[in-house]
Design a protein around this nucleic acid. Sequence first.
RNA 1: GGCCCUGUGGUCAAGCGGUUAAGACGGAGCCCUCUCAAGGCUCAAUCUCGGGUUCGAUUCCCGACAGGGUCACCA
Length: 547
Amino acid sequence: MDLKKLASALITDTDLLPIEEYEKIYPERVRGEKAEVTRLAPSPTGFIHLGNLYSALADERSAHTTGGVFYLRIEDTDEKRKVDGAVESVIRSLKYFGIDFDEGAEIDSPLNKYGPYYQRQRAKIYRAFVKDLIERGLAYPCFCTEDELNAVRDKQTQEKKTTGYYGEYAKCRNLSEEEIYKNLAEGKPYVIRLKSQGSVENKIIFRDAIKGEVTVTENDQDVVILKSDGIPTYHFAHAIDDHFMRTTLVIRGEEWLSSLPVHIELHKVLGFKPPRYAHTCSLMKMDGDTKRKLSKRKDPELSLDYYRKAGYFPKAVVKYLMTILNSDFEEWSLKNPDGDYRDFKFRIEKMGKSGALFDLEKLNDISRTEISKLSPEDCFAFLKSWVDEFGTDADKAHFKDEKYIIKVLALIMGAGGKKRRKDIERAEQGVRLIDYFFDDTFKPDYTFRFDDATVNCVLDVFADMYDPADDNSVWFAKVKSIAPLIGFASEMSEYKANPEAFKGNVSDVAEILRIAVTGMPNSPDLCTIMNILGKERSLARLRAARR
RNA sequence: GGCCCUGUGGUCAAGCGGUUAAGACGGAGCCCUCUCAAGGCUCAAUCUCGGGUUCGAUUCCCGACAGGGUCACCA
């Protein structure tokens, strides 16, 4: 068979470059010996999720801790699944979490020498190589229809054979020259398949950067490399792109491990040296009593928007992910509480081999801790940016009074250092936490544990003696002085020594006042709260709480 | 079902032939204390199961079991 003629009949482009040219167009990168070139290669199919961020972080850290390059490539080979604005969304979302690309699609950079970074725009490159493969007898056209393929698969399933297009099932593999040209003349659609040279009898031992030695079976499937629309499949595009974009480390989910034999063979027939691979475990979630991969459809917490709306501190999400990525990060972080996570020595090899259950509790803890480290001013800025986007009208009005809120935050956060509080977990919850500092959102729950006469007595007596000029100790002395009036102990030690002798103690007096002023039985320092509210409002609240 | 990956407390996990089997989150308790938070201290809780190899296995090998992934003209 005249393969050259066949190749020209199948791949009709007339402007393809000789394949050797591409080695010159995309030369080896100049880089340090250990510098890794990594990439994030999402398909623009929807919105970026936590798994992408997780993977992006591993890529970004691998590149930047070694002095390498991290770029963005868009895998848009499946037109059906394309969503407008997805690329911008990827870049924006990652930026929100502090991750930037050095190079790639929609990235303004002088490094952009390995583009185009959209696979659809690289069609000529792929076709040049497919054509070469056909000429070398390593690829062939397949005219099988979907129905025929399904029928074969059903038969294979029934006979308990391995499914797929291989060996005796590869009908079009040995089509005669005239059959091919006849089909072509009839205008039958076709795909190009790899003519696999492998055999499942052979095992390949391959070294994964995370999993270590992995034993796989050689590929014998005649996989599709060029779809009927002339666009390559993922497998083929991956081999070409990661070679010519000079990627050194491919980090991807472990769901790709099973197609590794295909990729190995593809690299081999194309004459490329494969990159190093790192197959990461997926983020899992508990569903009933079994684990499963976090799913886009079922789990809202997979969406990055979820974290933005809930007002998680972006750095906290990143730090949480870092603890899963390299478990010794947590220890490092404890030793360097104010350190930048970028100073941590991230290594892809330290990644865990088993899938981690996503732990929202731990994220919450990290988020609380990170927010507690902010100054009241920075915390205000963080909450304000959340309020601007997701807050109610009341929130927006409140946040116009920056000075007042900063005063409130200084209290809530225990500013000053030693008595730091961790009350704010997320912006959404933090904003609700300060509602009682504003009259329009003050929604008290007057559930007192004492009779009305006692409550009123405490309220009235304290209102009479309250003086905003009092410092904390004078303020508290006054609270204590009320106790004996209603048969409460003014000293805790007294009360503990003989609880039967009293109806209550100072803390109960304070509780009555606290419920009146804040509407809740628990709060930060009451004296300071009254101070921030001011005399008039404080007294008004004491009055309003009378039974 | 075939193939591949994984298997240490509730969760994330350190460990790499001999350890009282780290640490963190969560839980319980105590202290501190006007409540809460924070902080300090203490406690409970783990090597999936069989066989080997070895003087000795959580660690190495084999098998079972369990969980996960994958078997497209989707990535």
